[in-house]
Structure formats: C-alpha cells, structure tokens
C-alpha cells in the first residue's frame, strides 16, 4: 500500500500530536495544517478535537476561511474523519454548555448521555474507557465501506465522551482486539444492567 498523505486540521484544539503519531503508526504521512487552501485540496482529512463543542466550533470559525475549506473538502467526496469533538461538530447542533451550531455536514443533534440507562439503572457520565463496538442492525454490509472495515465486531475502542449520537472514536490507529467479557456480577454500587450498546453513527465519509 502506498503511503497516504493525511492532512490534520490544526485549529488550536486537541491532541494533534497524538493524532499525528497514530497516523504515522497506521502507515500514513501526517501533515498538520491550518491553511484553508491546503485543507480544501487535501487528499484525506482529519478534523481532531479535545474540547467542548462550543469552544471548538468557535475556534474553528475564528480562523478565516477554515470552515469554508472544510466544507469544500467534504463536498469533494474525499475521505474525511472527525475524531472526538472534531466528529461531533460535523453534526447540525451540539448541546454541550448551551446550544451551538455545528458544520451540519451530517444531520443530527449531539446530546448529553443521560445519567440513567434505558433500563433506569444509574450510569457514570462521561463514559470513559475501552468498550466493544457492535455492528448496528441496519448496516447489512457491516463496516465494509467504512474506516472500521478491518475491525472485528467486539474490538475495543477507547472513548471518553459525555455526548451521544455523534460517537467518539479515539485511538483508531491501533485498535486492540478484545472479546466481549461477560456482564459483571451484581455489586452493591454498580449499575445493575450493562449500558445498552451504542450504535456507531457514520462519522466517516468514504470517497
């Protein structure tokens, strides 16, 4: 496989070095950029992020030409990956610390994870840790047309999120296979039933 050039949007937000290292580890050539022309014409694009929705979209919009460059890139149909809040801002609206308008490249709202599961058991939020991924029922092709194509169902991903709908998928470069462990026995302090497995939302645009 030839090395792909991966442009990482550097807008002053996020653990960009960690993302660049992951790209290198996965066999790509990372290029950090805040230059709109470079971003609009990138081969592949990553929009990273560690942050709150409002601050991130504000940081992005504060850089002249950046939002338009990302839109132009998205319209080109070339592959784009949003990570963490960088993925959440691809949606219409985020509800973290107030309501904020996202880029609207993917329809939907990003909402806080409730403090109780659908079964009414308490759960700790943010959800932090390595969790198995499941293929959602509506995807008959599984993940074949996504960045997760080579991942076995049950592969564990680290996520650290307090919002759902927009899924946060981190450390994707080196997913560590795992098997789904059996549910924990009842504990006096634990949520009684495991949280429902979340449905990965398509945050990857394949070209």
């Amino acid at each position: 496989m030839t090395q792909a050039d991966i442009t990482i949007v550097d807008y002053g937000v996020g653990n960009v070095l960690s993302v660049a290292r992951a790209v290198t580890q996965a066999g790509g050539r990372p290029n950090l950029s805040s230059n709109p022309a470079e971003i609009a014409h990138a081969e592949r694009l990553i929009l990273p992020g560690v942050g709150a929705f409002g601050d991130c979209i504000q940081a992005l919009r504060a850089r002249p030409g950046l939002e338009m460059a990302i839109r132009d890139f998205a319209a080109s149909g070339r592959p784009m990956l949003g990570i963490c809040v960088g993925m959440q801002v691809l949606f219409d609206v985020g509800e973290e610390f107030g309501e904020h308008r996202g880029l609207g490249l993917i329809p939907g709202r990003v909402r806080a994870i409730p403090a109780k599961t659908t079964d009414g058991a308490p759960q700790k939020v943010p959800h932090i840790g390595w969790s198995p991924l499941s293929i959602p029922d509506h995807r008959s092709l599984g993940w074949t047309d996504t960045i997760l194509a080579e991942i076995q169902p049950g592969g564990a991903f680290y996520s650290s999120i307090r919002s759902q709908l927009g899924q946060t998928i981190r450390h994707i470069a080196s997913p560590i296979p795992s098997t789904v462990a059996s549910a924990s026995p009842l504990r006096s302090c634990a949520a009684i039933s495991p949280a429902p497995s979340s449905i990965p939302k398509k945050a990857v645009r394949s070209g």
């Binding site: 560690v50 942050g51 709150a52 409002g54 601050d55 963490c84 809040v85 973290e96 610390f97 943010p126 932090i128 650290s160 999120i161 307090r162």
Partner: peptide, 9 residues
C-alpha cells in the same frame, strides 16, 4: 478547563 477542553479531559 471543562469549557475549553471538555469535561472528559
């Protein structure tokens, strides 16, 4: 810090 980087960080 939570507002800038998110509570999760």
């Amino acid at each position: 810090m939570a507002r800038s980087f998110g509570s999760q960080a």
